[in-house]
């Protein structure tokens, strides 16, 4: 199985602080990988490096779309990374609050559509058809995440859990092969978390999209992940299946403190 995403010795410094330290991470096709670690371990920084918001200090990030040659994406702009087929959500929800739910998802279609200024002004056949396809595509995604009843609602009026799902739908609209979710279950109640669990598995199984997620909810992580990466102080301290990670002494130490492994 080929790796869709792999980082080699990826390092990110902020002044004297090393937030990400020589991390080698790999996500393979159709895989759900969880990235866990205590607060401040550098998980979100790693996400930001991968998605182009930060330019890593050293190391490489390679992306290989299914059936394409691997491509080094260091220093690419966020929109270029998204165009390649990596889409993400944010830890603190970043929807477009004053746009409707449907419009939010339609924004995700931007990089897969082509109408230009002239087309928009003339409203030629290509533009009209593309616009209708955008609407239809976005609506179907909303159905998939069970948000179709909110279609004309402003995004900011949605309940919290629904906003999280809308962010996922918006990311899916860019037709990614790898979806990066930054704490998708944060602030959700147990019922919503279970629904999310179901949604993530469905995305992988039905759409064939690999998923890399940062999450603190251990039940969710252990439930759905194929493999787990554990980070602490910017370093990767363990990799393995949920079973292996559960019994890994270094992980227990990182989470519970050095004295409590008695």
């Amino acid at each position: 199985m080929t790796a869709l995403l792999s980082t080699t010795h990826l390092t990110m410094d902020f002044g004297g602080l090393r937030a990400v330290d020589e991390v080698n991470l790999e996500v393979r096709q159709q895989e759900i990988v969880a990235l866990i670690g205590p607060n401040g371990a550098g998980k979100t920084t790693l996400f930001n490096c991968i998605t182009g918001l930060y330019r890593p200090t050293s190391g490489d990030i390679f992306v290989q779309a299914p059936g394409a040659a691997p491509k080094r994406i260091n220093g690419l702009k966020p929109n270029q990374v998204t165009a390649l087929g990596l889409a993400r959500t944010f830890q603190n929800i970043r929807l477009f609050p004053h746009m409707t739910v449907l419009e939010n998802v339609m924004i995700g279609r931007h990089c897969r559509t082509t109408s230009n200024i002239l087309g928009a002004v003339l409203k030629d056949r290509h533009t009209r058809r593309e616009e209708q396809e955008t609407v239809a595509f976005s609506y179907r995604l909303l159905e998939k995440v069970h948000l179709d009843r909110y279609v004309n609602e402003l995004a900011r009026n949605l309940p919290y859990g629904a906003q999280r799902r809308l962010e996922i739908a918006r990311a899916l609209a860019t037709e990614p092969f790898l979806l990066l979710l930054d704490e998708p279950a944060a602030g959700m109640n147990p019922l919503e978390t279970r629904e999310l669990d179901d949604l993530i598995t469905r995305i992988r199984n039905e759409m064939g999209i690999a998923i890399l997620l940062i999450e603190h909810d251990m039940k969710l992580v252990m439930n759905i992940s194929d493999r787990i990466f554990v980070m602490e102080y910017g370093k990767e301290i363990a990799v393995g299946t949920p079973l292996e990670i559960r019994s890994n002494p270094r992980v227990i130490e990182a989470y519970l403190g050095a004295d409590s492994h008695a």
């Binding site: 944010f90 609050p97 931007h110 409203k123 860019t174």
Partner: peptide, 27 residues
């Protein structure tokens, strides 16, 4: 017509949240 088009939507999104806008593939 521009406002109701793909480009107009991108402008609105840019006004709302620049970072999210880029992450969604808008240049």
């Amino acid at each position: 017509r521009l406002r109701d088009s793909r480009i107009g939507r991108a402008w609105l999104a840019l006004r709302e949240d620049e970072i999210a806008c880029q992450a969604m593939g808008i240049d």
